[in-house]
Nucleic acid binder design. Structure first.
Length: 214
DNA sequence: CCATGATCATTA
DNA sequence: TAATGATCATGG
């Protein structure tokens, strides 16, 4: 078992900047969308492989102490901006009630993160160029972190006082509690699957992270 | 079966 | 165009 430190992962990834992730996905045998199905997570899987992590999809810590994330970027005029929000981690209502921000998975993942900017060329994009790789360490007393913590506390408080059904993606300045689940209905029971949520980083936060890191 | 990867679809 | 909510394939 090879140990991939964050530095090594970044170096591995940087070798692939400017390359087309679609071709690499084929190389690694990762389904993209060419089977007629839609694997929305393939970019993330490819990046994990490129970083040297043999780990495929799975639980939270896909690295040792860091988290590998990819973000789709698009051009607004001639400026590169995050196209969408970025999933951080699932929300477990029990844990959310029990843990403060700095005890949460959310913080654990956010504080040592490796970001990959990926070019986005539209729905079912046939190209996905790796634009940039960067990493960032947050400190607990960063102003930004304080504001993020405020969002976390706000969402947490709402969960406690109003229940999970009251949560909405509208809450939060930097992070939000969006729905995120398997979707559809349970094939066994025919019941609607329960609505689950996850923390997402808003585009403004993603942008800020890249500014800080670069 | 469910969390994880992240994008897609719809509406304002 | 931005923002929110919903959705899909994958692997342990």
């Amino acid at each position: 078992m090879k140990i991939i430190t964050r530095t090594i992962a970044i170096n591995n990834l940087k070798k692939h900047i400017g390359q087309d992730l679609r071709k690499l996905a084929l190389q690694y045998g990762i389904t993209t969308y060419e089977t007629g199905k839609q694997n929305k997570g393939w970019k993330g899987l490819v990046l994990e492989r490129l970083a040297g992590l043999e780990n495929n999809v799975s639980k939270a810590p896909n690295g040792l102490t860091y988290e590998l994330k990819s973000v789709a970027f698009r051009y607004a005029g001639d400026e590169l901006v995050p196209k969408e929000t970025m999933a951080i981690t699932m929300i477990n209502s029990e844990e959310l009630k029990a843990h403060s921000f700095f005890e949460s998975h959310c913080w654990a993942k956010l504080k040592t993160v490796v970001f990959c900017a990926v070019e986005w060329n539209g729905t079912n994009s046939e190209e996905a160029k790796l634009l940039q790789v960067t990493s960032l360490d947050f400190a607990e007393d960063d102003e930004l972190i304080k504001e993020i913590k405020a969002d976390y506390d706000f969402i947490r408080n709402r969960l406690i006082t109003e229940g999970g059904g009251a949560l909405t993606g509208k809450d939060g300045k930097w992070i939000q509690a969006r729905t995120k689940g398997t979707g559809g209905v349970n094939p066994r029971t025919g019941e609607r699957r329960p609505i689950t949520r996850a923390f997402y980083a808003r585009t403004g936060l993603v942008k800020k992270i890249f500014e800080i890191a670069s």
